[in-house]
Design a protein around this nucleic acid. Sequence first.
DNA 1: GCCATCTCGTATAGGGCGATACAGCCCGGA
DNA 2: TCCGGGCTGTATCGCCCTATACGAGATGGC
Lengths: 220, 220
Amino acid sequence: MTKKKLGTWRIDRQLVEQISRHAAFGRRRKFKKNAMLYEQGEVSTRFYFVLKGLVQISIFRADGSEVVLELMGPETVCGEGSAFDGLPRFSSAAAIEDTEAIEFDTSKMTEIFRAHPEFATSLLRVTSLKQRVVAIRLKHLASREPQDRIMELLTRLEEMFAIDHPKGRLLVTHVTHEQIATMTGTSRVTVTRTLQRLREQNRIDIVDGHILLKRRPNTS
Amino acid sequence: MTKKKLGTWRIDRQLVEQISRHAAFGRRRKFKKNAMLYEQGEVSTRFYFVLKGLVQISIFRADGSEVVLELMGPETVCGEGSAFDGLPRFSSAAAIEDTEAIEFDTSKMTEIFRAHPEFATSLLRVTSLKQRVVAIRLKHLASREPQDRIMELLTRLEEMFAIDHPKGRLLVTHVTHEQIATMTGTSRVTVTRTLQRLREQNRIDIVDGHILLKRRPNTS
DNA sequence: GCCATCTCGTATAGGGCGATACAGCCCGGA
DNA sequence: TCCGGGCTGTATCGCCCTATACGAGATGGC
């Protein structure tokens, strides 16, 4: 179990198959590490189904600071929001590893939907799932408590990237305190302190550099 | 200019027409004030296009506290997220005024899309727009500064519900400090103080109980 | 007209977070 | 092997937010 980098997002197998089945409507593209899939502000009808690699989705504030929304690994969809509503991209997507993806274009989609309505349903499921994840993040970010914000991230990572462990669930994703800080809108120091506190509260543990979420008798 | 209650959300005319055109696939329903359109946790394939009234969308935290996501007025869509992804509702929707809406059911949607692919495209635009709004809210909620959080809400309200005024834009929506507090995740006192500070900074003004966003020479 | 309720303004005390700085650790490269 | 950089753990300090409380003004019911 090396420190493999994974994303922060996953969709279920059935949905992945549905989308893969319609891959012929898009074209395969490769992105070198540090290349941009798309940039905040541009208008585009393209969206991506990631096959390999890792893509970081972030929003840049007016003052230049960055809010990392997600890390999208294989078998995830990104960029579909702005591709469908036709407004400027609200986020940027950068390949942080060499990445392969299928690029779809929404401009011909209506006609494709006529012959393949199930593809429309699949895409609606994708956008709905994203809406859900973002709304739930909102619920927790609405709290000003760093502990809430951080536990939300950890729980989300657990659902997607944890493996069973005698004491609970072990996150195979490796994230630094710094990354947690930018994803939760707190400072790096506070992340360190909060994780420390969670350890004292016996809610988490650190095993070989990975975070272990302990089985909790009382629900959070 | 009475204190008319309006929502916090609006979609463009073209999209409204597109959806109205397919109203026959749903059925008209009425909800009395305080009735629930749907409740957090339930599984349902129904979603709503509000025609009249006002619906409050909120998420309840484990400790019982409420985060108000949106106030949906006429010509808005709600509930489509959980209706399409098939997972339990992550939010509740309560009519806070007598409300009329068209209730759609996603279970037969794939077949409808075959004959009306443009309806699928419209719905994708709706979900995409929602994703956008929530993501942008996330960007601001990621900040712990109350001023960021509150200005974000005001700016959003401005785009949707402001009228021109010699000095800037006047919000016709009336919101109490308390409501702003629950929507931005701060305390009522802080809202009062922050609005005070914004007034001193000459960024806003209060006119007849309504908030006026002053024309700003330098963009925020 | 009177009182209850809601909203807004303001004060105080306490705590926790941000900024900053620094030390120890691990790991990879020269 | 040694060095440098990134990551983690702490410490200090100042500031601002939360909780709480109270009063004034507006509003609405009776």
